[in-house]
């Protein structure tokens, strides 16, 4: 039987509040909503989905200390995906939903379709969504409200450029310029976050 490593120490040193709370915060900001959404997509209620996300993060917070940076590229993400996936499947097969009040019918329906599974593709998608959203949130303060809105209205909410220009009282050219500038920044930030996450 293996010796028990003193992981408590390393865990605290790595992601605990002592050394690098920022890293942990960024990590949870990306992955917690991702797990939450995956659970919701499979029919869990808000409270249960939140629960599950919390649990997955708890487990990860413990296990992450054992992660060696020397692990092959992308292995961490795969490992994370596996945990998330099985946590969700287990939660569903166990009848995790005890919140009741209208929710159990939906859940039962989902449970009776065992073939409809949370696929790794779904998980990848939610992880990427998490990264995008975290990136957007973190760069937003760098821009003025009106610049940001030019991007958001057109690139995210799909408003035609002319309409957005009208709404914002700007020329279409300015809307083009503003949203392009933010898009570039967003892209850089997403790549930066992705790189940092796969380094873990």
């Amino acid at each position: 039987m293996p010796e028990l490593p003193d992981t408590r120490q390393t865990l605290l040193a790595k992601v605990g509040d002592s050394s690098n709370p920022e890293a942990w915060r960024e990590f949870t900001a990306i992955y917690r909503p991702a797990v939450y959404r995956l659970a919701r997509r499979r029919g869990l209620q808000d409270a249960d989905a939140d629960d599950l996300a919390q649990q997955v993060l708890l487990v990860i917070s413990r296990k992450i200390a054992d992660w060696r940076p020397t692990s092959p590229q992308g292995a961490f993400r795969r490992w994370l995906a596996t945990i998330a996936r099985h946590a969700i499947i287990n939660a569903l097969t166990r009848g995790h939903n005890v919140v009741a009040e209208g929710g159990s019918g939906v859940l039962q329906q989902l449970q009776n379709q065992p073939d409809r599974d949370t696929s790794l593709a779904d998980i990848e998608e939610e992880f990427r969504r998490g990264v995008f959203r975290q990136a957007a949130e973190s760069i937003r303060p760098e821009f003025q409200e009106s610049t940001w809105n030019a991007f958001w209205l057109t690139a995210v909410e799909g408003l035609p450029i002319e309409e957005a220009a009208d709404t914002l009282g700007k020329s279409t050219g300015t809307v083009y310029a503003s949203r392009s500038r933010i898009m570039r920044r967003l892209k850089d930030k997403v790549q930066e976050l992705e790189a940092r996450q796969s380094e873990q």
Binding site: P33, Y36, R37, R40, R41, D46, A49, D50, R128, R129, F132, R133, A136, W152, A155, V156, E157, G158, M183, L186
Partner: peptide
């Protein structure tokens, strides 16, 4: 991706 990932939808908390 921006138009796909950034809008909020029914699955958000």
């Amino acid at each position: 991706d921006a138009s796909r990932f950034l809008p909020t939808d029914d699955w958000d908390g």
